[in-house]
Amino acid sequence: MKNTFSTSFFTIAVMAIFTTFISCDKDDAPQKVVVLETKTVSNLPAPQTGGQGQPEGGPFTKFSFSQNAVVTNDVWDIAFRGTKIIVNGGSLIGLKEEPSRKGVAAVSIVTGSLSSITAIPAANTFIQDGDKTYSFPTSGINSWYDYNATSHIISAKAGKVYVVKTHDGKYAKFEILSYYKDAPTSPDGTSISRFYTFKFVYQNNSSISF
């Protein structure tokens, strides 16, 4: 017997398995006296025009870790539009309505839980945006999400922590929890997308650990 499916959507397992990766979770960082606060950002809107085969557009939502707020000036660290994330460092990727980079921001992607990542990764693992190159890869094992072609759900990969060098050379680490409004445990077709929920820790001083 055949089930009726909308076969026009060719199903593809977009992602597979985490393989080799820089492992940092075994480092025993010296305990800091100062306990840094873990903050949660909920429902950060990241609207986008186009997509679905059409050119993507619309302004990026710029975020500053030190202010824990959306900003409109040049002191942003990372910015969101749909599933794309950019950093305030490097050069233009070549996207529509892309903000120019005025800072020194970069990102290093590590595997672990947010609390287990305590050391700042090696300097050469930090990546900036560049011509046709995303610091946050949009596919492959280092993209921040998996796409389920059957349910069309975007899910943030578990165990990915992004250590960000901020626009002014400080450090923050963050983990994306959800891409859907109010971060439902099991998003479905009715969930509203392009709303980020993430946790982050901001290191105010020039320490080499969190």
Binding site: F18, T19, T20, F21, S23, D25, K26, T111, G112, S113, L114, S116, S155, A156, A158, G159, K160, V161, E175, L177, S178, A183, T185, S186, T197, K199
Partner: peptide, 15 residues
């Protein structure tokens, strides 16, 4: 130790 899962309640990752 590179495989994590997301906790359904806290939404945080664990190994």
């Amino acid at each position: 130790g590179t495989v994590y899962a997301r906790d359904p309640v806290t939404l945080e990752s664990f190994q």
